[in-house]
Amino acid sequence: MKDADKDSVLRHTAHVAKHFIAYRGSLEKLVELIRYSIGTAAPAPDAIAHFLRCESTQKTLEQTYETAIWCSSDYTKSWRLICLSTTADPATAARLLARKPPSSDCCAFCWQNEPGWRDKILIPERDAYGEIIGGVYLHAPCSRPWRRLRDLVARSGEHA
């Protein structure tokens, strides 16, 4: 794949993530969504799938495009695409932090559940004192934006 194509796939992957907020499904479907977003100039599906499987791509997306993508290690081997953008409004952040997912095996940030795999896949949140906050479990990539929401609320003086 050419550099221009790589750049366009990265941009459109981030766009798809922003559209769906949290996607869970097969890689083929994800590639289809990305190709639809790019339009007629889209590279071949296999090329995109290969590009998305590369660790370097996943790292670039997470570090510069506010987008996490990974293949889950549970028995379904489903692919996850999570938008890591956070709100800039402390009041909204406080509301998001106070919102509890329907079950404790859900990630508190993206709300995707990991039934039976919570202890292996999700990480309990720890506060500044290093104590585990009960009932809040997060995917590793989701813990960074979650931490950011916490900081945002803590510094603005809102109460979560």
Partner: peptide
């Protein structure tokens, strides 16, 4: 300072995501 918080953001500006195009984002 956290850039998203009010302490790092100058007033009178609006930041938004404007789509996947090269000159948007």
């Amino acid at each position: 300072a956290l850039l998203v918080s009010t302490e790092g953001l100058p007033p009178g500006f609006e930041i938004s995501y404007k789509g996947p195009d090269q000159d948007a984002q």
